[in-house]
């Protein structure tokens, strides 16, 4: 038995939840689909995955860490108050659920816990949404992900066409469903089978093979057309590099943490001016080695979830599935 609701009734349910929680939903805003706080008449984007991944909910592109003021000889530090409300994030696809797992590894494990990330993560209740038809750029199954089961979800929602079905997984998730339980019908629902994937990638043995490929000539070939922009990294649900900077106005300042990307010059340049990754080859190599070798070595999982965003957004179609193929063939 599953709890089902007509898709047409979904706004009503979200409205109800928004009274209690901060509710984030996939929506089309100014022509770009992304997660946005629910409000009436918001244009929901449920047909396809969103362009901007949920990464910035936990790890914003620009995050103020603390404020400071230098007065006379003393330094005052002022913490930035955090939002305390619980947030329900509805409609996260399996690939993006996996990406949250990747981010958790980086920000919460191995004895390091990032308080800014942790705070937002702890306040979040995740409602994963199953896919029915992959987009032509999707290849999550190749990355070992089940497109109909979001890893780490508090609630799993299933797309049944006209309706949505909900299944509480964690206690927190169940609690959320209880708040709107009156809206659901109880019925046996068959989850429609997943459609055929257009893109695939065979990653078997790739992390191991890459151990001896640092100086391989394929990097010259792969990187040639790369423009060294950061479109891939900034639409990537797992890319998590950041840079910390101070913005100072007179005596006052604020420390900010911003997304950064290994394609940029300032990312690796040293204090003395030395640039260990001077060109396209070194930077592109680093990006793919990080995703396919270093990250698996450290956390035992790939840093790619097969969401296909970079495949679509790269201005020169530098396709990671193609890179994987070339690595296999090399």
């Amino acid at each position: 038995m599953m709890k089902t609701i007509l898709k047409a009734k979904l706004p009503e349910m979200l409205e109800q939840l928004a009274k209690e929680y901060k509710v984030l939903v996939p929506a089309k805003l100014e022509g770009v689909s992304r997660f946005a706080a629910y409000r009436e008449n918001l244009e929901l984007a449920l047909d396809e995955n969103v362009t901007m991944p949920p990464k910035d909910i936990f790890f914003p592109q620009t995050e103020e860490m603390y404020k400071f003021a230098a007065k006379d000889q003393s330094l005052e530090i002022e913490e930035i108050p955090q939002d305390e409300k619980l947030q329900v994030i509805f409609g996260v696809r399996s690939c993006d659920m996996k990406s949250i797992d990747c981010l958790d590894q980086v920000f919460l494990t191995k004895g390091f816990s990032d308080p800014f990330y942790q705070d937002k993560r702890d306040r979040s209740i995740l409602i994963a949404l199953s896919c029915v038809k992959p987009m032509e750029s999707c290849f999550c199954t190749s990355m070992g992900i089940d497109p109909q089961k979001g890893q780490g979800a508090d609630i799993q929602a299933y797309d049944l066409g006209e309706k949505l079905a909900f299944e509480g997984i964690t206690e927190r998730g169940q609690e959320v469903l209880n708040k709107v339980s009156g809206m659901f019908a109880e019925e046996d629902a068959a989850i429609p089978p997943m459609g055929e994937f257009n893109l695939t990638a065979n990653v078997e043995g790739v992390p191991e093979k890459l151990k001896n490929m640092f100086d391989h000539s394929i990097w010259d070939d792969i990187s040639r057309k790369c423009l060294n922009c950061s479109a891939c990294a900034y639409v990537c649900p797992t890319c998590h590099c950041f840079d910390i900077a101070s913005e100072v106005r007179g005596e006052d300042g604020v420390k900010i943490r911003c997304w950064d990307c290994c394609m940029f010059d300032e990312y690796t340049v040293m204090a003395g001016g030395h640039q260990p990754r001077p060109g396209k080859k070194e930077r592109v190599r680093n990006r793919f080695l990080h995703k396919l070798r270093y990250f698996p070595e450290r956390y035992n999982m790939l840093l790619c979830t097969g969401c296909g965003r970079c495949v679509v957004k790269c201005p020169v179609n530098l396709d990671i599935t193609n890179v994987i193929k070339k690595i296999k063939e090399a």
Binding site: G31, L227, C229, A231, F264
Partner: peptide, 27 residues
């Protein structure tokens, strides 16, 4: 407001040929 400053516009642009771009000088 929706610009993510990925600089794809700059990097794909044949008119942008500076050896060192002003936007790469946040330091």
């Amino acid at each position: 407001d929706r610009c993510i400053r990925c600089y794809a516009c700059r990097n794909v642009c044949p008119a942008c040929s500076c050896r060192e771009c002003v936007f790469d000088q946040t330091r």
